[in-house]
């Protein structure tokens, strides 16, 4: 089991108020799963994602990553775990603007204990894997949004992490580019990569094989994607919309043809 979460609680203190962001979450994620975590804002999905990424610590409960109890670790140990076990992909890419693609991808290796030697070679390999073998020396400003996110994915992969953790990875991309990134995720998943995507968009979640839904800090459903009733409903609605749109397009087209014929 790659990820085991037991009775996870997280309480924030904002001023005098205590915000109970997570109220006893239990999740297990196996190796090579492709999971989407969904929920409205305030559902606790960001908190869960921060804890999954070892950026934050639970107030109560246990989070075991690859057999290691992360809830017992200090800041330096958590940093080492983030470096070795987790690859982050952020909504806004978070690339260093003045560094080239290779330098950006090398970043995690700089902070890794043994990864320093051959860092450039490994960074290049990661860039080739995301299809940017010809953009190694480009700076973020010289690349499109999709290319930037690919660099970020390469950076996440470079240390061969146990999980790839993506937070709204297509939030800043148009639908064509989003599709491109999701195909990349699919390919990585096919290669055996464990992927966790946090999103609020059903079509993104549709690429996963399992959807975990949160509401008010609790897991309200945890089902394979094709069995998830909310998702199925969305798919049907989307299909219907598509159908209608197609029909409308056809009728417009035929009327235009008729008009042209007359």
């Amino acid at each position: 089991m790659t990820i085991t979460i037991r009775q996870l609680h997280k309480v924030y203190r904002i001023g005098d108020e205590r915000v109970h962001a997570l109220r006893g979450v239990d999740i297990e994620i196996k190796k090579n799963e492709f999971v989407a975590i969904m929920g409205a804002s305030g559902s606790g999905k960001s908190t869960l994602m921060n804890i999954l990424g070892c950026l934050d610590k639970p107030t109560r409960g246990a989070y075991t990553l690859n057999g290691k109890p992360t809830h017992k670790m200090g800041a330096a140990e958590l940093a080492a775990v983030r470096n070795k076990e987790i690859g982050f992909v952020f909504q806004s890419f978070e690339l260093l603007p003045r560094a080239t693609a290779v330098q950006n991808v090398m970043l995690p290796l700089i902070y890794s204990k043994k990864g320093w030697l051959g860092a450039r070679r490994r960074a290049k390999k990661a860039l080739e894997r995301v299809g940017l073998g010809d953009r190694m020396g480009h700076r973020p400003s010289q690349m499109s949004g999709g290319q930037r996110q690919r660099v970020a994915v390469a950076r996440a992969l470079v240390n061969e992490p146990s999980i790839l953790l993506a937070d709204e990875p297509t939030g800043n991309l148009d639908s064509t580019t989003s599709e491109e990134i999701l195909r990349l995720f699919k390919a990585l998943h096919d290669d055996g990569q464990t992927i966790v995507i946090v999103t609020h968009e059903e079509d993104i979640a549709g690429h996963s094989e399992r959807i975990i839904r949160l509401r008010d800090g609790r897991v309200i459903s945890d089902l394979p994607t094709h069995q998830d009733p909310v998702h199925r409903e969305w798919v049907q609605k989307a299909a219907a919309t598509l159908h209608t749109m197609a029909a409308q397009t056809r009728s417009v087209e035929s009327s235009q043809t008729a008009g042209a014929g007359a």
């Binding site: 990424g53 940093a79 080492a80 983030r82 470096n83 982050f88 978070e94 995690p108 902070y111 890794s112």
Partner: peptide
Amino acid sequence: TREIGLRKAVGARPAV
């Protein structure tokens, strides 16, 4: 700040 956040996220220890 964001750069620091990123560096920390990818595994830079506070001491580094």
